[in-house]
Design a protein around this nucleic acid. Structure first.
Lengths: 213, 213
DNA sequence: CTACTTTTTGACCATACGGTCAGAAAAAGA
DNA sequence: TCTTTTTCTGACCGTATGGTCAAAAAGTAG
């Protein structure tokens, strides 16, 4: 272990500890659900005494709320790709790649999100009703434009989006099932590439996506 | 309330109460997760005193186990359709219809299953490793046959199955999100029909499914 | 009706959990 | 150095929860 020479400043201590706690909390909430998670477990995983958690986050709910909000923002960012594209092959293809990558790198976050929504979004319902609704409408507009431009078949954009979310997040949320069906081994680099390719092929084919000239 | 003339026999009492408890448990486990569910809540919903639950199911875990097992069997049955079909348009189309119908009629069951798998299948891992593995291999063989017969494109059957599961179950597991994006209203009959149609169109198109002559 | 078995239930218990607090330790400022 | 502010932490508390139990109620068989 390399010890820093200078003692950490207060700001650094705060940032470092909040990070430790949030990372641990994400994992524990993902593995046990909100109800099954305990502050003690999170504290142990973060390597801090339980009372210290309550110093940074007053309640279990406040901590959970922060975890869910952080995840939501990661996801929103990942969707910028969508807008910059000139055709569905590029836009939806890149979106699938991005979401599959998130499923691979942050499966815990995806599970926490899924759990939150499954339980009727007790803490982020307001986000769903505002930010997510806007986000969805914007992307639906893009898809409608592509349809008008003859770049893809006239599918219902809403259900296309649901399919994109469902399919990509499945690789995180049901990762354990996939691993079991893969002989107990996590997907290798090649298998992840094959998964991405399969998803892209079927969906892009399925909506008759064409590239812009 | 219509009261039966004859008092219930012991066998009837047992069946009736187990059914009441299992139905209530499915709902509560779905809404709160295993950790968040309480025996008291289940008891209240079932209209029985808590001690009575422990008479029929010794522990919370035993009750949960039965709920998950029951769901698993419903799903396995729904897949018989797959085998009886002579081509992917019929087989996969009917499978999508069946799974969408389950998502619509038994969303709680789907959520319990999702939660169980997300938490690394603590109670049904053995089922995953035996029954589900067999089931999956059988269906993969069917898909491989359809590919050999030129009835669909040579897609990876594994990832096609994942896409089918992901897409159909999404309408149950993320039903709350879908409802929110639908203006706060649950999907109407017509909207469910549109959802089914969208999923079938995109996937069957996506794999180049053709009907047998 | 009588003896027996199954079912029901209120009261109770031990434990685990979220949260509090007072005082110690450490950093920052003068 | 001395004072103030922030961070840390063991010990503690009230409550909610899963589970138990003994006795009552209800069904069954003769």
């Amino acid at each position: 272990m390399v010890q820093p020479q200078r003692p950490l400043s207060r700001k650094e201590i705060r940032q470092e500890n909040e990070r430790l706690i949030l990372d641990a909390a994400e994992k524990v909430f993902a593995e046990a659900g909100f109800g099954g998670a305990t502050m003690q477990l999170i504290a142990d995983l973060a390597g801090l005494p339980k009372a210290n958690l309550h110093y940074y986050f007053p309640t279990k709910e406040a901590l959970y709320r922060r975890v869910v909000q952080d995840i939501f923002h990661v996801w929103l960012q990942a969707a910028d790709i969508f807008d910059d594209a000139s055709d569905p092959v590029e836009g939806i293809g890149a979106y699938i790649d991005a979401k599959m990558e998130i499923s691979r790198r942050h499966p815990a976050g995806s599970k926490v999100w899924a759990s939150e929504v499954m339980h009727r979004a007790p803490v982020i319902q307001d986000y769903l009703e505002t930010t997510l609704v806007e986000w969805t409408e914007d992307r639906m507009a893009v898809i409608h434009r592509w349809i008008r431009e003859g770049l893809m078949d006239p599918v219902d954009p809403r259900h296309l989006l649901y399919m994109l979310w469902a399919t990509t997040q499945h690789y995180a949320d049901f990762g354990h099932q996939i691993e079991t069906l893969n002989g107990g081994r996590p997907l290798s680099d090649e298998e992840w590439a094959a998964a991405k390719a399969s998803v892209k092929t079927i969906i892009l084919n399925g909506i008759g996506a064409r590239t812009a000239q």
